[in-house]
Nucleic acid binder design. Structure first.
Lengths: 207, 207
DNA sequence: ACCACTATAGACAAGTCGGTCTACCTCTGT
DNA sequence: ACAGAGGTAGACCGACTTGTCTATAGTGGT
């Protein structure tokens, strides 16, 4: 990839994360990237294309950071816990790879582009699938029952989203830590919860 | 309150929730509200003031809906579970008072106005405090230890945020149901989790 | 009857938006 | 030497933004 193209993506990503996508104009991006407007439009046909490029770039950064945070633990269970220690670092601006915390770029972008048909929304959706797949990889190491594994994976992903959102909206920088006991509970005593999940499914069919 | 003022707030809220605040211009609001621009600026000094009025109105609607969803259950524990059944209705467009689901207005608004000094961000923050206080009211009915009660309250709020975010970004309309087993687990076996929370606090101090 | 209020439509100002375009300047490969 | 790619600055376009203003009209209270 060209140097300039990369510079533009990095600058745009930084601005989009800090201020939101709608708030940042093309002129601000080219000023920050120290690049001519023609150069930007040489590499990207539109602001939307640039936005998608920043989402893809952020996805690569985030997934790499996540893999790195999880793979050092001794067991699969500890890897899942380690994810939340990593999130805690992020919230407190200690995750160098992710930069300062301004919430999840993908959640924020999806909030700005709500229509499911929009390419930007689909990018955000895809990122969450990537995250879920990585979590599932670890869960499946100790839980062979696919149904139970899916329940644990979903629960962990929801707790992750909740922690990120709470950190952003409620300014609760300890949200990731508050979740860790629940993760432990989920991993040590998971059988009754699946029973309860089945009960829920039954109840919704009754409705 | 004047009829016109109320009409403007309702129209603006509907548009803001559907499309996001930055995406909706004043002209669109007055067209939807069938009101002259001067009338809007007679009641609201600026778009920001109008936005805050919509946030306050939505807060009133949401808190009323939430109280209503929870107060019918037999026990405090069931009220907390009922909250998630209510969320499930909302996600599936069955909560009449809240309208069709487009994510949490406050999370989305906070994502658009990230600066903590902004009045809009503070409104969102305040709403989450209101929600937390209502949850705490029920938790304190069965958990007298303030530390444990706080942990349970925080956990439930994080699960709520996670479910809403997952429903929006991952298009997972069953997110609220997936959380219910965790709520049950939290309420029936809450002692070990507080121990784990203490362990976390110890570990973070070591860092 | 008259004032103050509430409302209307819509022109207008001043600025920003995404995006196009011209004109010119370096490099690099042949 | 020369072509073409990649780069620069910035003028320009039409559409849109928030917010102000003029001119007009119906209303209720004193």
């Amino acid at each position: 990839m060209s140097d300039k193209k990369h510079t533009i993506i990095v600058a745009a990503l930084q601005l989009f994360i800090q201020k939101g996508i709608h708030c940042v104009g093309i002129n601000e991006v080219i000023k920050e990237a120290k690049v001519a407007k023609k150069t930007l439009y040489h590499y990207f046909p539109s602001k939307e294309a640039l936005t998608i490029a920043t989402l893809e770039y952020r996805d690569a950064i985030f997934m790499s950071w996540m893999r790195n945070s999880m793979q050092q633990a001794k067991s699969a269970e500890e890897s899942l816990e380690a994810l939340f220690w990593g999130l805690n670092d992020w919230f407190n601006n200690k995750a160098v790879a992710l930069g300062n915390f301004h919430g999840c770029f993908f959640i924020n972008a999806a909030a700005e582009y709500k229509e499911q048909s929009s390419a930007i929304n689909q990018c955000c959706h895809q990122h969450k699938i990537n995250v879920k797949n990585l979590v599932a990889l670890y869960v499946e190491k100790f839980e062979t029952d696919p149904q139970k594994a899916l329940f644990i994976t979903d629960s962990i992903c929801i707790l992750k989203e909740g922690a990120i959102t709470s950190a952003l909206v409620q300014h609760d920088l300890t949200a990731a830590l508050k979740v860790i006991p629940l993760i432990k509970l989920l991993l040590t005593q998971r059988l009754p919860s699946v029973g309860a999940a089945r009960e829920c499914e039954t109840r919704i069919k009754e409705k």
